[in-house]
Design a binder for these strands. Structure first.
Length: 877
RNA sequence: GGGGGAUUAGCUCAGCUGGUUCAGAGCAUCUGCCUUACAAGCAGAGGGUCGUAGGUUCGAACCCUACAUCCCCCA
């Protein structure tokens, strides 16, 4: 049979993914004989498509889950999506608009029908894409945050928290998106640098004709909402205005001058107009000074009747017009340009967010935050890397109440029902609400039609924060087998950008509803950026299509490529070179397989490879220990690098070369047996990173039983052999001799195959004898001999206290050889001197620990030996 | 403005409580090779006064103090 010299992943990947599913390897169910290992996916937006961030995040999860599965744990990775309320609604609105339908023309029910249609069409594409990446999720457990059961969980929690007195309605300053006509969270606001205009306006001082107070503002259209002008009490320029009033230009309304140290003396004119309804800081100032609130902005960004002037016009149109009108009225002193930051909507990038007072639902955080901080502080939940603990603490100590209502339709409608008298009841269902309402009002004839449910829906995070519990139906059925077995989950993999508003809140929900943390470790990935360090974005077009990448480089190549440079918490600078490296690694493994596959065993041959076999076992065991340690510490890229080097450098470059029989010659059976066992061990260690190629080779390497897959093969356990250090040190020395020979070949341009002689003048003749076979094979040496002196006309190199000679008639440049050796000697002498100096220092001798002292003495002895050998070599020239 | 993190080879990063061979890895670079597993490869080589300036110590990339630069979070 002939195997292609390059590995082609496309044929292989679909086949194995299908078989894994047929075998049900990814399905998990409570099994008391096994330790559970649970991961819940950070649910992506149901209508989203896979991007590079998902690739990184899900690769890491799959590595963790696959390894746990191989370790014999009941590995359960729960997939699913969230309904991404504002993003999805914005998409649906845009789509309808293209069809000429305005949202305002539809009823809530009609709109939701459209939205579900959209969701059913595009929803879940992303989950199909994850399969191409190799994600080993238990697909039977796929959940969606807006499915009936999860919706019920959300409503139950809302009712419960309301009954506990933790949910309240209140007027607050929110970020208002006038286009979507909803409040959005701080995290959905994107600051943008802009050049803004600063308008200097004269407010006439009441009762003092000709006196003005000049106020600087970037938003002149809000003067109708002014309720005061504030100045700093320490500002002498305004001391005379104590107790005075000023008149709003154009409008003529009188407002007081107030004094507050909040006002910066050197910003603008030092006088600040106070507009509590339209600026958070002003709002707080207003509360402090007991000022009224005048809200002049309608939900759609136009001015309402409270503005008196410009009613019904958009705020930006008004800004232009009022500047002109102020100018004409002689109230505009000047306009200055200045660099400022405008808050934009993440979902509607062309829309300026307005701070707006609004009636919203809030969840009190203090009670929930305290224990959630505690469990991170005491490491019940560990953050990886731990530097995020500080950030977490800072946020939790300054937590604000959570605005959980959104003025949207796509989401869970708030289960609050208003009564004709203006009061409301909160209940899980309309029927319950009616019952409550009747009781509350004492009117048994109250009908459902008398109740009006709150129009708003809940923030999407109000469903995602329940995710680790709700995916196991822990609200509907709090004592069911799944939740008891799989909760708390083990590891959560997500980005630090949602540490607060998702991770922290899940911790709160877990503690509140299960009295247990939702997970034990939080692995925080970085952001995937391009090679120049820019964030990947559609606008820049710097994000490759993940599926194209998989098609081009194979899922295994992409997975390893992403992990190569992705230490936890660090941003990943994506470069196509990384996935190339991953692809090349697949190919390397493929070719190692091709080599081994071609070997024919001959039972009559003696076992000649004891040294390589013993040595590679030592390397393998050491690597397993190292990998386990890396995994323990969530250092995925280091674990990958360990196996990468073991496969490429130790197995392929060294071991296989050592045991490889001559072309078309058979190999001894014992060596082949060991080699195949090693190959299997490597496939297992590699499998979490490269599931597809390892499965393919697993089946190519031997006949397998129907359930014998590397996916469910036991994770290798290290058994560290006796004398491991010695085994490795000896081989290292032998390989150093080989490297010395190869260096000579390179320097003398001899080519890799020209047979050479090697003469060793060594203090370790046993080593040279033991490893002669390896030295001959890897160095293409015809004959190794021991001698007390080097032959004339030879090139030499010194290793430790030994000197090695390669006779080379006609290739010797005596002067150059001498120069090279002298340089080495000088270097060694300098080194000896520094060690001697250190040892000669009395304080060092007194203070250093014995083992440190011993090491220094050893260094000195080594240096002495080397110097002696070099001196000999020079003499011999 | 407040808080946090960072600064080690061209790039991305390791470097555990200060002391193994004058600082390590991967990638990139350079040189030579199509040596029947692999040119998506093989062999070899070069490259860093560990941001700057002080200090503690027998000894500092590691500890302390300033300063500089960058990033993040909050306001």
């Amino acid at each position: 049979m002939s195997l292609a010299p390059t590995y082609s992943p496309t044929d292989v990947e679909a086949k194995w993914y299908q078989r894994w599913q047929q075998q049900g390897f990814f399905k998990a169910k409570p099994n008391l004989k096994k330790v559970p290992y649970t991961v819940v996916i950070p649910p992506p937006n149901v209508t989203g498509v896979l991007h590079m961030g998902h690739m990184l995040n899900n690769t890491i999860q799959d590595v963790l889950v696959r390894r746990a599965r191989m370790q014999g744990k009941e590995a359960c990775w729960v997939p699913g999506t969230d309904h991404a309320s504002i993003a999805t609604e914005a998409k649906v609105v845009a789509l309808l608009k293209e069809q000429g339908i305005a949202k305002t023309d539809l009823t809530r029910e009609q709109f939701l029908a459209h939205a579900f249609e959209w969701k059913d069409k595009y929803g879940g594409i992303i989950l199909e894409q994850l399969k191409q990446l190799g994600a080993s999720c238990d697909w039977d457990r796929t959940r969606f945050t807006m499915e009936p059961d999860l919706t019920e969980a959300v409503l139950r929690v809302f009712v419960d928290l309301y009954n506990k007195g933790l949910i309240y309605r209140g007027v607050r300053m929110v970020n208002w998106d006038p286009k979507s006509r909803t409040a959005i969270s701080d995290e959905e606001v994107v600051p943008k640098d802009v050049m803004a205009k600063m308008y200097y306006l004269n407010y006439a001082v009441v009762g003092q004709e000709g006196q003005f107070l000049t106020v600087a503002t970037s938003r002149p259209e809000t003067i109708m909402a002014d309720v005061a002008v504030a100045v700093n009490p320490n500002d002498p320029r305004f001391a005379h205005l104590a107790g005075q009033k000023v008149r709003i230009p154009l409008l003529g309304r009188e407002i007081p001058v107030i004094f507050d140290e909040y006002v910066s003396i050197d910003f603008g004119t030092g006088a600040l107009k106070v507009t509590p309804a339209h600026d958070l800081n002003d709002y707080e100032l207003g509360v402090k000074h007991n000022l009224p609130v005048i809200d002049i902005l309608a939900d759609d960004g136009t001015l309402n009747e409270k503005a008196v002037l410009y009613v019904g016009q958009d705020r930006f149109a008004v800004r232009k017009q009022i500047a002109k009108d102020l100018q004409e009225a002689g109230c505009l002193v000047k306009i200055e340009e200045y660099a400022s930051i405008t808050q934009m909507s993440e979902r509607n990038p062309d829309t300026v967010i307005e701070p707006k007072l609004s009636l919203q639902w809030f969840l009190k955080m203090e009670h929930l935050a305290k224990p959630a901080l505690e469990v991170v502080e005491n490491d019940t939940i560990k953050l990886h890397p731990p530097k995020f603990k500080n950030m977490y603490r800072a946020w939790m100590e300054n937590v604000r109440d959570w605005c959980i209502s959104r003025q949207l339709w796509w989401g869970q409608q708030i289960p609050a029902y208003y009564l004709p008298d203006g009061t409301f009841v909160v209940a899980l269902t309309a029927a319950d609400a009616l019952e409550k309402a009747r009781a509350q009002t004492g009117k048994p004839d109250l009908q459902l039609s008398d109740l009006r449910q709150d129009e708003d829906v809940l923030d999407t995070w109000f469903s995602s924060w329940l995710w680790p519990i709700s995916v196991f139906d822990g609200f509907k059925d709090p004592d069911n087998a799944d939740i008891n077995y799989f909760y708390p989950t083990n590891d959560l993999v997500t980005g630090p950008d949602i540490l607060f508003f998702w991770v922290a809140r899940m911790i709160m929900a877990g503690l509140e509803y299960r009295q247990e943390v939702p997970f034990k470790n939080v692995y925080l990935t970085g952001i995937v950026r391009d090679a120049q360090g820019r964030k990947m974005s559609k606008q820049l077009g710097n994000s490759p299509d993940p599926l194209d990448l998989i098609a081009q480089y194979g899922a295994d190549g992409v997975r390893t490529g992403m992990l190569f440079s992705a230490p936890a918490g660090n941003d990943l600078l994506y470069d196509v070179k990384l996935v190339e490296q991953g692809r090349n690694f697949s190919n390397k493994l493929w070719n190692a397989f091709r080599l081994v596959k071609g070997w024919e065993a001959d039972a009559s041959l003696p076992f000649v490879n004891a040294k390589p076999v013993e040595w590679f076992n030592a390397k393998l065991q050491a690597a397993i220990v190292e990998m386990d340690d890396h995994f323990e510490k969530f250092r995925m890229s280091d674990a990958l690098m360990t196996i990468y080097k073991l496969v490429w450098d130790d197995f392929c470059a060294q071991y296989l070369e050592m045991v490889k029989p001559a072309y078309q010659h058979p190999i001894d059976a014992e060596t082949l047996r060991h080699t195949l066992a090693y190959f299997e061990a490597l496939l297992k260690l590699l499998h979490p990173f490269m599931p597809f190629i390892t499965e393919e080779l697993w089946h190519e390497l031997a006949e397998r039983g129907p359930r014998d897959y590397v996916t469910v093969a036991p994770w290798p356990r290290a058994t560290v052999p006796a004398h491991i250090a010695e085994t490795m040190a000896q081989m290292e020395k032998a390989l150093a001799i080989v490297a010395g020979i190869r260096t000579v070949r390179n320097q003398k341009n001899l080519g890799p195959n020209k047979p050479l002689m090697l003469v060793a003048k060594t203090d370790e003749p046993q080593l040279v004898t033991d490893y002669e076979g390896i030295i001959r094979k890897l160095g293409s040496i015809a004959e190794v001999s021991l001698a007390d002196a080097g032959p004339a006309a030879s090139v030499s190199f010194v290793l430790g206290g030994s000197e090695f000679f390669i006779p080379l008639e006609g290739h010797i440049d005596l002067a150059a050889e001498r120069a090279r050796l002298e340089k080495e000697l000088e270097y060694a002498q300098g080194f000896r001197e520094s060690v001697q100096k250190k040892l000669g220092n009395e304080k060092f001798a007194q203070n250093a620990k014995p083992d440190v002292l011993e090491r220094e003495r050893q260094k000195l002895a080594d240096a002495e030996a080397k110097i002696a050998a070099l001196a000999q070599a020079l003499k011999g020239l």
